[in-house]
């Protein structure tokens, strides 16, 4: 009898877990479906064309997500371009003993980097507006003056725009990249380091020729997770990017927009078709982020974590 009672407890527990998992799946599907329903007027009217179209004048029913999509991808990719070398570099310094950092100092450095991830987005935005942008002024003016013929710096710096948004985004994704690079390098077999050194490699040669390639796929997976975060980052970007959603501007000094910032800016006053267009934008963003995450997961699953095949 006692065993019977325990088995009922077991079944009950398993059912509850299953229910919890099911609930998550249901919420996700429901979210997606309601987004599609809400976006339907825009989907029916513009079709796929809205994704690439440029122009934004809600009072004349002119919509296009092209510039915001461009801004989303460009700001995300550029931010990663800045954050990856720094993040991986920090991870290398903390794991590879180029210098004998005392354990306590390693811990403090790691903690400080993790703390970057804990700073609320709005604080980054505020700091960007009142500290970073004024500080960037002279540099941006110089870039425009000297390299103004180059399309990246072709417009004068107006303050808010792509450049400060990219810099702050880079700072925000840095901890993710550093943490994952640290884990990836730390999970490598210690013997691998020693093996490379025993062949006569310097620390740097061991890192470049053996350890980074071994940890590379996992680091790449982490970079993509960070990209997912950067693509959807809203508050800081909205505060810094300038929110000009109607045209694609290649200059980094010009204001731009992202899908997330567009939604955050417009949802309060949106009516009718404009709401549907914003929902459409949300679907595009969801698809983009889901794709990047899926790719990241795929890469992380593809290789075993230590890079060590059979025992």
């Amino acid at each position: 009898m006692a065993l019977y009672g325990r088995k009922i407890g077991h079944r009950l527990g398993v059912s509850l877990l299953g229910l919890a998992a099911l609930l998550v799946a249901i919420v996700l599907v429901a979210l997606f479906l309601t987004l599609v329903v809400a976006a339907w007027p825009a989907i029916a009217r513009f079709g796929w064309g809205l994704i690439g179209a440029a122009g934004w004048a809600p009072n004349r029913q002119v919509f296009g997500l092209g510039p915001a999509l461009y801004g989303t991808v460009v700001s995300g990719v550029l931010a990663l371009g800045l954050a990856v070398p720094v993040g991986v570099g920090v991870a290398l310094l903390l794991t590879e003993e180029f210098v004998f950092l005392p354990r306590s100092l390693q811990g403090i450095c790691g903690f400080l980097i993790d703390l970057l991830a804990a700073i609320p987005s709005v604080v980054y935005g505020l700091w960007g507006i009142f500290v970073l942008i004024p500080a960037l002024g002279p540099l941006a003016a110089w870039l425009h003056g000297v390299l103004g013929d180059w399309v990246l710096f072709a417009t004068p710096f107006l303050g808010r725009g792509m450049l400060p948004a990219v810099l702050v985004l880079a700072l925000m994704v840095l901890p993710t990249i550093a943490a994952i690079a640290r884990q990836s390098l730390g999970s490598l077999d210690r013997e691998l380091r020693v093996a490379a050194m025993a062949v006569g490699a310097t620390r740097w040669e061991a890192v470049r020729g053996v350890l980074l390639p071994a940890a590379g796929t996992r680091i790449l997976g982490g970079v993509l997770l960070a990209l997912g975060r950067a693509l959807g980052e809203t508050m800081a970007v909205t505060m810094l990017i300038g929110n000009v959603p109607d045209r694609i501007e290649a200059s980094l000094l010009a204001p731009s927009s992202t899908i997330a910032s567009l939604i955050a800016n417009e949802f309060a006053e949106a009516r009718g078709l404009q709401v549907a267009v914003l929902m459409y934008g949300a679907l595009v963003l969801l698809g983009l982020v889901a794709g990047v995450h899926g790719l990241a997961e795929g890469i992380l699953q593809w290789r075993s974590p230590t890079g060590n095949g059979r025992p």
């Binding site: 013997e191 691998l192 020693v194 093996a195 062949v199 006569g200 053996v210 890079g307 060590n308």
Partner: peptide, 21 residues
């Protein structure tokens, strides 16, 4: 070493590594 510790590279590159550096 005690435990075999080849590099996560091809058989050829494992041997060539020492020569390359």
């Amino acid at each position: 070493f005690q435990k075999p510790n080849p590099f996560p590279k091809s058989i050829f590159e494992n041997i060539a590594y020492g020569l390359r550096i």
